[in-house]
Amino acid sequence: MLDALTIAVAVTALALAAWCGFAAFRDQPTKDWHFIGMAVVTLLALAQLVVGIVRLAGGDRAHDGTTTFVVYLIGAFLSVPAAAFLSLTERTRWGSATVAAGAVVLAVLEVRLYDIWGG
């Protein structure tokens, strides 16, 4: 895996979590700007998914198992879009809190992906 991409995804996810957490603290639902931030984080996670699959197809192997690595890659990619969908159904401060939680989950999954790859 690319360490720089893993760090970029984790840092942007934590920034999104702080931003949406602050919105929840201020009793605000997710707004269009939040969805732009979610799109950026999701695109980075998609890039990581593609890079991970290409590396596996190229012969590299994850230290703790290919299946586990691929499942974590897919889960990392889907965590923020799932939270975004839930925030659309909950148009209160709890929608923002849901996105913040989903972004924290993504950051934790990034740490786990780094460990599975062999870092």
Rank of each mutant, 00 (worst) to 15 (best):
L2W: 04
L5K: 00
L5G: 01
T6P: 00
A8T: 04
V9C: 08
V9W: 04
A10F: 04
V11A: 13
V11D: 14
A13M: 03
A15Y: 02
A15I: 04
L16V: 03
A18H: 06
C20H: 05
R26H: 06
T30P: 04
T30V: 11
K31N: 07
K31H: 08
M38E: 10
M38D: 02
V41L: 02
T42D: 10
A45S: 15
L46T: 15
L46G: 13
L46E: 15
L46Y: 08
V50Y: 06
V54K: 10
L56A: 04
A57T: 06
A57E: 10
G58W: 02
G58K: 03
D60Q: 11
D60T: 07
A62K: 04
H63E: 14
T67L: 14
T67N: 12
T67W: 11
T68Q: 14
T68L: 15
V71M: 12
V71N: 12
Y72E: 12
L73T: 05
L73R: 01
L73Q: 07
I74P: 01
A76H: 00
F77S: 04
V80R: 01
V80K: 02
A84F: 01
W94Q: 07
V99I: 10
A100E: 09
A101P: 00
A101S: 11
G102M: 03
G102A: 08
A103N: 08
L106P: 06
V108W: 08
L109P: 05
E110M: 15
V111H: 11
R112C: 07
L113M: 06
